[in-house]
Amino acid sequence: MSEREPAPVALVLVSHSRAIAEGAVDLAGQMAPGVLLLAAGGTDDGGLGTSYDAVEAAVTRAVADGRSAVVLADLGSAVLTAESVLDLADPDVAERVRIADAPFVEGAVAAAVTAHGGADLDRVLAAAEHAGTMFGGDQVRPAAVEAAADDGVVRGAVTLRNPLGLHARPAAIVARMLAAYDAKVRINGANAASVLELMKLGATQGDELTIEVEGPQATEARDALVAAVQEGFGEV
């Protein structure tokens, strides 16, 4: 996708604190520069609380040019304010906006990376809402290694070279890069389309990554992934 044209799904981050909303926009934006991210934090005079007008303005901007939007909100009144805005919005706007039941920061990052890949509203919403379980426990388990050779799975193995391993930035690069291929990729059993699953692997320098790919462009996807890892994501 063009980096100049924002992704079809934008995010609105509603917090009680302007600093939290803007910080979350910075964090998610670093990993998903092609997504329109809008902060609506604090009251109109800069205090703690949520502003109906600020949320309404952010939602209006988010859905301009035919985009849809996912709203993430932190504590109670941020959610209530977002709901009130959608209640009073034109039905044409409200039907293109979803409020995610998701942890604020993790949900914003997961949703932004998914939106960056050009995903539709439901998929961006799901990415946000699954972010909670990603960080909540040990839900991500490596899948059993499939031994059969003629199962249509393209395999590869590559050693991580960059010092910090699969931290946030490389994980986002991988997820974004693979979104361009018609292929399902698993790295050490984790879904490589999910930046959170990748980060949860905790893979560091020197770790070997086992790659399994299925789909029409499996070979191309694997080769691109291997090349990116060998290049150390530009960090070596």
């Binding site: 703690l48 609380g49 304010t81 009130s84």
Partner: peptide
């Protein structure tokens, strides 16, 4: 709704 800032805004609103 526009001026309260806390949960009372959307609730009373």
């Amino acid at each position: 709704m526009s001026t309260v800032g806390g949960a009372a805004g959307p609730l009373y609103g």
